[in-house]
Amino acid sequence: MNKRLFSVLTAILMAVGMIGLSSLVVKADMPTDVKLTTEQQEEMKSLQQDALNQKKEIINKYVEYGVFSKEKGQKVITHLEERYKKLEQNEFVPNFHDDYKKHRSKES
């Protein structure tokens, strides 16, 4: 691997690491008792549905182009749909605290 490629990959990994660390700080600062109004929930529902549909379209393109197998694509889409249902159950307020705890328990 040449030095330029190595430098670029190192820079990307460092940037991703910094984003990950900053998201932990944001999660710690998030209030846990937020309630959205019905109007706010409807707006978030519409935005989240649009995002879900766009992500599904992207995954399906990856399957079409051979980046993912059909099985892998379906697994990713199922995961995205489960995350959407969880968000819907929580009235479209993200619950980063539970996600962080679950992630941390997998690492142990």
Rank of each mutant, 00 (worst) to 15 (best):
L24H: 07
L80N: 02
A51Q: 09
N2E: 08
N90Q: 07
E64M: 03
D29H: 01
K75E: 15
R83E: 14
K75W: 15
L80V: 02
N2A: 07
E91L: 08
K106H: 13
S105Q: 13
N2I: 07
I58R: 03
S69Y: 14
Y62L: 06
I19A: 10
N95M: 05
K45M: 11
Y62E: 01
L9H: 14
Q49F: 14
L36R: 04
Q48A: 13
N95C: 05
Q89L: 13
H97C: 05
Q49T: 11
E81G: 07
D29V: 01
E88A: 11
K102S: 11
Q49C: 06
M44S: 07
E91H: 12
T10I: 04
I77S: 03
K55H: 15
E39L: 01
K56L: 09
R83C: 06
K70L: 11
E64G: 01
K35L: 06
S105D: 14
Q41Y: 10
N2Q: 05
E57Y: 08
I19G: 09
Y65H: 04
A51S: 12
I77M: 09
I59K: 01
K35P: 00
L21G: 15
K106R: 05
M44L: 10
S69F: 13
E88F: 09
G73Q: 04
N95Q: 12
G73E: 10
G66W: 09
K106L: 14
A28V: 10
E64W: 06
G20H: 00
K70C: 02
I12V: 12
I77K: 02
V93C: 00
N95W: 03
I59W: 13
K56S: 05
M1Q: 10
H79W: 07
L52H: 08
Y62W: 09
Y65G: 00
K35M: 08
E71H: 10
L21I: 14
E64D: 13
V26W: 09
D98Q: 08
K106V: 08
E39Y: 00
M18H: 05
E42K: 01
V26F: 11
I12R: 00
M14P: 02
N53F: 15
L21K: 01
E81R: 00
N60R: 08
Q48M: 10
F92C: 02
M14T: 12
V8N: 01
L87A: 10
L21C: 12
V34G: 01
D99W: 07
N60D: 14
M44G: 03
E57N: 07
Q48Y: 15
G20C: 06
L9R: 02
Y65I: 03
K102L: 12
E71L: 11
A28I: 09
Y65M: 02
H79S: 09
P31T: 00
I77N: 03
S108K: 07
I12P: 05
D99F: 08
M1D: 13
E39R: 00
L47S: 13
V16M: 10
K70T: 12
D29T: 01
D98G: 06
L9G: 10
